[in-house]
Design a protein around this nucleic acid. Structure first.
Lengths: 146, 146
DNA sequence: ACCAAATCTAGAATAATTCTAAATATTGCT
DNA sequence: AGCAATATTTAGAATTATTCTAGATTTGGT
């Protein structure tokens, strides 16, 4: 069922990545990561908390924040922000943009050719050296998947 | 001294733009707008408040927020967000990107060819109709103006 | 000058996130 | 196995930026 390129990194891989940063694999971290992989709808910390609680009823919201931050630090997950709304989390590590649907509030990943990111960086005046570019679209999506 | 293309819109123009939206020109709105035009360093609401207070000691922070919001609504000013930081305000209406200097925290405007924005929108899959694109660079700037 | 509507103000309320300090869990010795 | 050192989790308090509320002030049109 792995029809599309997927950067799923299951328990062992996760443990490895964490260890690389001198961190431990814990049930909380594994579960938070799994929740992000399972439903890739850019959930907020609160939403992750809600999805994780049934599995691990004792988990606290602070821990969810901690785990998410940890995963971001280890480059397993990207934090996505849109106009002061709550931070959303995204396990898609390919370079991509985001599309915010004004009607539904949903966030969609938009894959873009890598060269485009390079082209953008090339537009910067001398003296500016970017190590990241973020691209966000806003508008209406009339996808069939809605 | 008007060396660069400038979209300054002084009192009369401001009053006009406000009137277009059925709003009044007030000392507070004029001053907030002037402060934004005078020092275009993408100040936060707090910073605008600090700059405005000496001129109009009775002004409240709530009013500064109100004025900024009003100016944004009238398309005189753009609100700029970067990773959950406080919203910053920018009177540059040309389509442009922002560069966040990780070292200084400063925000710089980056003018980009208009066609680039169009090209980006063209990359969207069918079904996605964007009415705005936001581009943010992050990195180090070693400009002489620092 | 008067009235209605618009605007402004101070302070309370809210939302998302971070901080703090104590409780738990885990690891690496011995 | 036993134990100290360290990492992680937890609940709740604190913080920050912003919005809300309700009353006071200002304004434009008659």
């Amino acid at each position: 069922m792995s029809t599309h390129a997927n950067n799923a990194l299951h328990p062992t891989g996760l443990a490895q990545k964490l260890a690389d940063s001198g961190l431990r694999s814990t049930p909380q971290r594994e579960l938070v990561y799994e929740v992000l992989l399972t439903k890739r709808d850019h959930p907020t910390a609160d939403e992750v908390f809600a999805r994780v609680k049934p599995e691990l009823p004792g988990i606290s919201l602070a821990t969810v924040y901690n785990c998410l931050e940890t995963l971001v630090q280890c480059d397993l997950v990207r934090a996505v922000n849109f106009e002061r709304g709550p931070t959303r989390y995204c396990p898609n590590l390919r370079p991509h943009a985001h599309f915010h649907d004004e009607a539904t509030g949903q966030t969609h990943d938009i894959d873009l050719p890598t060269v485009l990111f390079a082209k953008l960086k090339a537009e910067l005046p001398t003296g500016f050296d970017a190590n990241a570019v973020e691209i966000t679209f806003r508008g209406k999506a009339k996808t069939s998947s809605n």
